[in-house]
Amino acid sequence: MRPLLELKDLHVHLGTLYIIQGVNFRVHEGENLAILGRNGAGKTTLLKSIMGILKPSKGSIKFRGRDITGARLHERARMGIGYVPDTRRIFGSLTVRENLLLGAAGIDKKIIPERLEFVLKIFPDLAKLMNHKARNLSGGQQQMLNIARIIVNPHRRLLLVDEPTEGLSPLYVKRISEAFEVLTREGVTIILVETKPLLVKRITKRYVILSHGKIVKEGDSGELFENPEIMRRYIGVEMRGG
């Protein structure tokens, strides 16, 4: 079967720093992947290079069989890659509705109401905030908008999600993980950068561990629970309460 995403010998520099030092992996449709690693291992850089925000110095990226290494950011988005950044980056001076409509750019106008309904079903909290400026939302609400803005567009096939639950209360963590489960059922594939083992297990099938810009271990996500030593050794996370 043709993989959805394929990275071949990817190297990325940030200025004079050598961040990603030769990464290879394949992600098949429906086979959600977790990227784990300590701070500074290169997780965010890797996501940004797949999205096209950063240019690799060497190697290639294939998406649905097409080489997209040279494609520009908005072209990749049009092809079906969505990026949920860790720092949220919602448009603060725009209303929630305007944020969502920007996410729906390029889709058939007739299905926009239907898509808005879809995301508001996943994130009902946003329904009453539609005309509020996004910068006045709470952290958790902003994160929901951050995700909603991407998935309002039905063409997204691959979601690159960067630490979506960082600093959020358990209620929001639950909401967001449920949202990812819904999306998976809808046929969206997710690449998740996360440190919470529970979320990794619920959402992803496989994992890779990144260290100093290289993949040092990979396997099935369930394994992380059976063998807590992996998390302690590679990521420095103690497993507590599963």
Partner: peptide, 24 residues
């Protein structure tokens, strides 16, 4: 207008507008 909304958003964060599939 659509252009207006895109311009306002891009003034805040151009990269993110492009990440949504819009050629700024």
């Amino acid at each position: 207008t659509n252009y207006g909304t895109i311009i306002r958003a891009a003034i805040e964060d151009r990269e993110m507008v492009e990440a949504l599939g819009i050629d700024v």
